[in-house]
Simulated scan of single mutants.
Amino acid sequence: MDQATFWSLLDTLAKIGMGALLLAIGLWFAHYRKPSQPASPESIAAKRKLKIYEEVSRQMGNVSHSFAKYSALVIESVRFGARWPQARRAELDNINNELVQEFRRMADAEANLLLIGEKGLEKNLRLYGAQIALFRKQVYVGRRDISNQEIADLKQDIYKLREQFYDVLSKKYDDNVRKSA
């Protein structure tokens, strides 16, 4: 085989190879990329609700965490009474301020729920917040006439309301996942 025929054959093979490669890339894009279809208004609304549900859940997780820290310290103060260290009292003051800030975020979460028409869910959230506020009025530094059982009952009521809230939120979230898919 002479050199001109060799280069001609090599050129033809390169062109065929490039064509096959371009064809493979084109088929890959056609197969794995869905044609862009405009999202339906229901799908857009469901996705917006999902985002709000996730944000509300995150905010309530922060409230629950702050309340857990607050309740642990305030219960400790009730149990130790006058022997409770001043440093722990300062820590409780900081946690109390944090909890107040979380209540502000809870109010924002309630507003977001009302914005998307979730009145029942907002009511559950409001009841949860009211129960935490009741706990704060009943269990405080220096109070000695409350029993451990009364404190446990108050906390149990809060945990029940939190669980109810998350049950409803979870159901709503799952429903909207199906709608947005």
Rank of each mutant, 00 (worst) to 15 (best):
E102S: 03
V63K: 00
D108R: 07
P38R: 12
P41I: 08
G81F: 00
T5Q: 15
K69Y: 09
Y32I: 08
F135R: 02
K49I: 07
E76P: 01
N112I: 03
Q149F: 12
K47H: 08
F67L: 04
R104A: 13
R33C: 08
L114V: 04
L10M: 15
E110C: 07
G26F: 05
V78D: 00
S147M: 03
H31K: 14
A45D: 09
K119L: 10
P41S: 09
I146R: 01
Q101N: 11
V78A: 02
T5Y: 13
S57I: 01
R144C: 03
R136Q: 14
R79T: 06
L99P: 01
Y53H: 04
Y70G: 01
Y70M: 04
D108F: 00
K69F: 10
V78F: 01
R105N: 11
Q101G: 12
S64N: 15
S43V: 13
P38D: 15
L73Y: 00
A46F: 00
N112V: 03
L22R: 02
N148W: 07
G61E: 10
L115Q: 14
L127F: 09
H65V: 08
A90Q: 14
G129L: 01
F135V: 03
N94A: 13
A30Q: 12
L134W: 06
Q59P: 06
L10P: 04
F29L: 12
V74L: 02
A20W: 02
G81D: 00
E91R: 10
Q37V: 15
I116C: 03
Y140P: 04
Y70L: 03
W28D: 08
K51M: 12
Y140L: 07
N97F: 06
L27W: 07
A133C: 09
R48D: 09
N96Y: 10
L115D: 13
R83D: 10
R89W: 11
P35V: 13
T5G: 08
R136H: 07
L134N: 13
L27H: 04
A68Q: 12
L9I: 12
V141P: 00
G117V: 00
L114S: 08
M106I: 10
A30Y: 15
A111W: 05
A30E: 11
E118T: 01
R58A: 11
Q149L: 14
G26K: 00
Y140M: 11
S147H: 05
A68P: 06
R79M: 08
K123P: 05
R136A: 04
E55V: 06
Y140R: 13
F67A: 03
I75F: 07
N112L: 14
